[in-house]
């Protein structure tokens, strides 16, 4: 399919270009917006591979929630990015090293080089062909049977992270008047209103 190939090159090219712009853009808000564009094109690539569930989850989780909070924070920060860039050369060796390691890892995965051969074979669970099940079902079957402990474990890690964030930011300030809706709705008229007989020229 020509259209398929064209779509792939379009998505891939935009993803790479916007990935570059994330680090090249002067304005941090533009960086985040380019990051969102990159996520979006990655989702497009997933759709081309037939992994529509992963594509939608990528958009919902990363674009719809994570990047929004990211944008939220970046918009309110007052950072001088020109100043931050001063240390560019200083951090170049370590950044380059990390990039190199990632590149080597990617090449290892792509090259299919198995350091422990039996691990690779046991990871491949027989998945029914896509004509029989949708990939949501296929993913669910694998995730909730073979990898259920890993799945639950990652859930617990997220829970711990969430509780940690709450503990770090929770503080009880004294003197804050909070609205207690239960108290408000249970208040009766005779508790709230006092009827007084006012004598003329006397006042209360």
């Amino acid at each position: 399919m020509i259209i398929h190939a064209l779509a792939f090159y379009l998505f891939a090219a935009i993803a790479v270009a916007s990935g570059f712009m994330v680090i090249a853009a002067r304005n941090p808000v533009h960086s985040v917006l380019f990051l969102i564009l990159a996520f979006f094109n990655a989702a497009g690539l997933f759709v081309l591979m037939g992994a529509e569930f992963l594509a939608m989850i990528l958009v919902i989780v990363y674009v719809g929630a994570v990047a929004v909070l990211f944008l939220f924070v970046v918009m309110m920060l007052d950072i001088n990015f020109v100043e931050l860039r001063q240390g560019f050369l200083q951090y170049l060796p370590i950044g380059g090293l990390i990039g190199f390691i990632l590149l080597v890892e990617l090449l290892l995965v792509l090259g299919g080089w198995a350091s422990v051969p039996h691990v690779a074979s046991s990871g491949a669970l027989p998945i029914p062909p896509p004509e029989q099940v949708t990939n949501t079902h296929a993913l669910g079957h694998v995730l909730y049977t073979k990898y259920v402990y890993l799945f639950q474990g990652s859930g617990l890690i997220l829970l711990v992270a969430m509780i940690g964030a709450i503990v770090l930011t929770l503080r009880h300030r004294p003197g804050v008047r909070r609205q207690d809706i239960a108290v408000q709705t249970y208040r009766r008229r005779d508790e709230a209103v006092e009827v007084k007989k006012v004598e003329p020229r006397q006042g209360i």
Partner: peptide, 16 residues
């Protein structure tokens, strides 16, 4: 196949 997720994804993008 993933119509609901698509709708949910698009509606979550509305914030942008």
């Amino acid at each position: 196949n993933v119509g609901v997720l698509y709708l949910f994804a698009i509606s979550s993008l509305g914030v942008y």
